[in-house]
């Protein structure tokens, strides 16, 4: 597909998504978060380290819109800044996970045979490992910088993508247009590129949006447990964890990051939902007549 047709298609999909309520709300939320993440260093009223020892755990006021935390730092500013790291790391790790998982999955789906059999067992084994455990172990050993988190997240979140991509490839390969291309004698790589991938990428796009939200959930859980972003840098998970202790005195400290995190994840989910419906991958949708 040429760049022009690709752009046209992206525009077409976006327009279709915006026409749905879920897509409009979802894209707006995600867009808003991205804008804030990029601009927050300039628009945040306070520096995230700036402490006001005379005003700890204060409620909302004209100066501090959402009050201050236990060290007297401005909650509103920290809320604006708190998604930057999460968005940056997951924003890079998600496409990487999607790419390597997707390629390996499609490859295995097409190749089949013993390699497929063996690698799928390994995938099963990895999926059996409890939740964020492998992440925790790696982080405790190597530290929690972005250079560790990003590849680790990309690796572990890519594994379930293998399964999805493989199943999607299996489904498409069984269709007659692949047989038709084979019978004409196209090279296997051309068939994959031209006939197979356009049909698999739709599934992968939706899968990618879902993975992104799960990765954000995982990332914030790591921060919450103290294995993610290192203080004093602001992060929503860490903010909840810190403010939790003073919850009865200053609920805003918890509620602000919670709202920020939840709106982002809900936004991504709504976007994924609208994307699935736009691309016609929604299972529950049935034609009327």
């Amino acid at each position: 597909m040429s760049t022009a047709t690709l752009t046209a298609r992206v525009v077409c999909i976006l327009r279709d998504m915006l026409a749905r309520p879920s897509g409009a709300i979802g894209l707006t939320l995600v867009g808003l978060h991205l804008v804030i993440a990029v601009t927050s260093p300039w628009i945040a009223p306070f520096d995230y380290t700036e402490m006001n020892a005379t005003m700890t755990l204060s409620g909302p006021s004209a100066e501090h819109w959402l009050g201050t935390d236990h060290l007297g730092r401005d909650v509103f500013s920290r809320m604006l800044l708190g998604g930057r790291e999460a968005l940056l790391i997951t924003g890079i790790a998600t496409p990487v996970a999607l790419l390597w998982g997707g390629f390996l999955g499609v490859f295995l789906g097409l190749r089949g045979g013993w390699l497929d059999e063996v690698l799928m067992r390994v995938v099963d084994a990895f999926l059996a490992l409890p939740g964020i455990l492998p992440l925790l172990v790696l982080i405790t050993v190597f530290g929690s910088g972005g250079e560790v988190l990003m590849p680790t997240l990309a690796f572990f979140f890519g594994i379930p993508v293998i399964r999805v991509a493989r199943a999607a490839a299996h489904e498409v390969v069984a269709r007659d247009f692949i047989s038709a291309a084979r019978a004409r004698g196209h090279r296997p790589l051309d068939i994959v590129r031209r006939e197979l991938m356009p049909n698999v990428t739709d599934t992968l796009l939706v899968e990618g949006a879902m993975r992104w939200s799960w990765m954000l959930l995982g990332f914030s859980a790591l921060s919450f447990l103290g294995f993610g972003v290192a203080p004093p840098r602001p992060d929503w998970g860490l903010m909840v964890s810190d403010a939790r202790v003073y919850m009865s005195l200053a609920p805003w400290g918890v509620i602000a990051p919670v709202i920020a995190l939840s709106t982002l994840i809900i936004g991504i989910n709504l976007t994924a939902d609208a994307l699935a419906k736009t691309l016609g991958l929604d299972q529950s949708r049935k034609a009327v007549v």
């Binding site: 998970g237 964890s241 918890v254 939840s262």
Partner: peptide, 12 residues
């Protein structure tokens, strides 16, 4: 979509 720790914290 709400992270577990958020739900837990809110419930508490």
């Amino acid at each position: 979509t709400i992270p577990e720790f958020v739900a837990a914290t809110l419930l508490i």
